Simulated scan of single mutants.
Amino acid sequence: MSVKKLLFLSAFSLCSIVSAQTGFTLKISGEAATPLELRLSDLSKMTRKEAVMKDKEGNPHTFTGVPVIEILEKAGVPSGKALHGKDNLSKYVVIKSSDGYQVLFSLAELDPSIQNKNVIIADTIDGKPLPEGKGPLRMIAEGEKKPARSSYQVTEIVIGSSKQ
C-alpha cells in the first residue's frame, strides 16, 4: 500500500472516530423528572472531579469526569434531603454500556449526604481521552476492591425503583 493511501486511511479513520464521538449522547432515562441526552460538550461544561483506580498490574491511573450525582441532579433525580424517605430510598441507578454490560447502584450510595463514594462518568485517563474501545465515557467507582462496576463505553443511565 502506498504512503498516500495509508495517510488517507489514517486520516479517514481519525475523522470517523471524532465524528462518532461528537455525535455521541449519554442518555438519562427512567424515573427521572427531566430525562436527558447529554453530549460530550455538555458534560465538559459540568463540574469536573478526579478518581484514581489501579489497572490489572496495580498501576494507578487518574480519571477525570463528572460526578454521577451531578448528572442525576440535572435530570431531576432526588438528592440530599429530598432523597430521604421511604419513596426515594428504594430507587436505584443502572449504568448501561454499549456492549450490553450493566451495573447497579442504589441511589443512596451515590448521594454525598449519605455516603462519601466517589463515582464519576470519566472521559479522560491521565489527562488524555479514553482509548478507542474504552470510551468515550467510562464509569469509575473509586475505592472498590474490584473494578467490576467501573464499566467501559457507558451509553445510558437508567433510574428505577424497587417499589412495586
Rank of each mutant, 00 (worst) to 15 (best):
I71R: 02
C15M: 11
K81S: 14
K86Q: 08
P112I: 08
E70F: 00
L6I: 06
P35Q: 10
L9H: 10
G133N: 06
P67Y: 03
D111K: 07
V158L: 11
G23A: 06
Y101A: 12
V119D: 05
A148S: 14
S113I: 02
V158E: 13
T64Q: 13
S13W: 04
S98V: 06
P112F: 09
Q21I: 07
K49N: 01
K96R: 14
E50H: 07
R48F: 00
I114W: 05
L38R: 00
G30D: 08
S2D: 11
S2R: 06
D42K: 04
I125T: 11
N88C: 02
A20T: 08
D111Q: 08
I157F: 15
K54Q: 09
L43G: 02
P78W: 07
S41D: 13
A33L: 13
G143C: 15
E144D: 15
H61K: 02
F24R: 04
M53S: 09
E70K: 15
D111M: 07
K56T: 03
E73H: 00
A33N: 08
V52R: 01
K163M: 09
T25C: 12
V3R: 04
F24S: 05
L107E: 15
A108K: 12
E144R: 07
V66D: 01
S90H: 14
L38V: 11
R138C: 02
S161W: 04
V66F: 00
S13F: 05
A75R: 10
V3A: 07
